[in-house]
């Protein structure tokens, strides 16, 4: 009896492993086909513009509002700690570095997964369940080209833009709190920041991070939609999976990228 349950457990483990490898394989083929498959559509740019609007512009409000608040909170916390050591003019440096290196890319990617990623999954899942994808295929249009590819590109382009904007409004919010409310001397706030922030090391590395996150989050979102069970239950499960997987992937990758970029090895 015990033997059987052990064997059964090993079997379940094997089945889960096969399922994971299968999903990875399918999603890779899916990605390659969507991005590099033959055949393009004449109105590709128009499709891309429409998706940039849906994915990028519509995510702006939440990104900007969160950015300002996070910058303000960073500034308040930083001030109350640095104040004890009499170096409150380092607040600018702290806010800018935190935002550029970590919070900008990471928080934007997390918000993006919640706002745009889940919407992408639900939209594509819905198209699948209402047979719009099959219908496209029957009309002789490859849904990977018409539906999936523009959404992927829109995600790749939007997220780095959003992350950059997030950092900028965050720094602005931080400056507002530090300079206008807490009375940090404005000149040293900015000069301190400018002395410590390096364009190549901090700004560009942050952008590279958000490009990587954009790739992963959009890929997960679009694939989950395309691969979901075409039922309302299946769509809601796929949407949840998008947010969970994308968030975990972002946080995990962030650690690896940080170690590679800022770690000393």
């Amino acid at each position: 009896m015990r033997n059987r349950t052990l064997l059964e457990r090993i079997r379940l483990l094997g089945a889960a492993g096969i399922a994971v490898v299968g999903a990875l394989g399918r999603s890779t083929i899916f990605l390659l086909r969507a991005l590099f498959g033959r055949g393009s559509l004449g109105n590709g740019t128009q499709l891309l513009v429409r998706q940039l609007y849906a994915v990028g512009v519509l995510s702006l409000p939440i990104i900007l509002v969160s950015g300002v608040f996070i910058g303000m909170v960073l500034s308040l916390q930083g001030y109350s700690i640095l104040n004890k050591y009499g170096s409150e003019q380092a607040v600018g440096q702290m806010v800018a570095l935190t935002l550029l290196r970590e919070l900008g890319p990471v928080v934007t990617a997390l918000l993006f997964a919640g706002r745009a990623g889940s919407a992408l999954t639900a939209e594509i899942g819905n198209m699948k369940s209402t047979e719009q994808l099959s219908s496209l295929e029957m009309i002789g249009v490859d849904p990977l080209k018409y539906i999936v590819a523009p959404r992927l590109w829109a995600g790749f382009i939007s997220l780095p833009m959003l992350a950059t904007l997030f950092s900028v409004v965050g720094i602005w919010g931080g400056a507002m709190v530090a300079v206008d409310w807490l009375g940090v001397y404005e000149g040293s706030f900015w000069s301190n920041m400018q002395n410590s922030v390096e364009f190549g090391n901090d700004v560009l590395n942050g952008v590279i991070k958000s490009v990587v996150f954009a790739f992963v989050v959009t890929w997960i979102a679009v694939f989950q939609g395309y691969d979901c069970d075409p039922t309302s239950e299946g769509i809601s499960r796929a949407t949840t999976r998008t947010v969970v997987y994308a968030s975990l992937a972002v946080l995990g990758l962030d650690f690896i990228l940080t170690a590679l970029m800022f770690g000393d090895f």
Partner: peptide, 16 residues
């Protein structure tokens, strides 16, 4: 995809 131009399909839900 070329071949499918010769088909028309009316799906159960319409699929508009």
């Amino acid at each position: 995809f070329d071949m499918r131009k010769e088909f028309g399909v009316l799906f159960q839900s319409g699929a508009l």
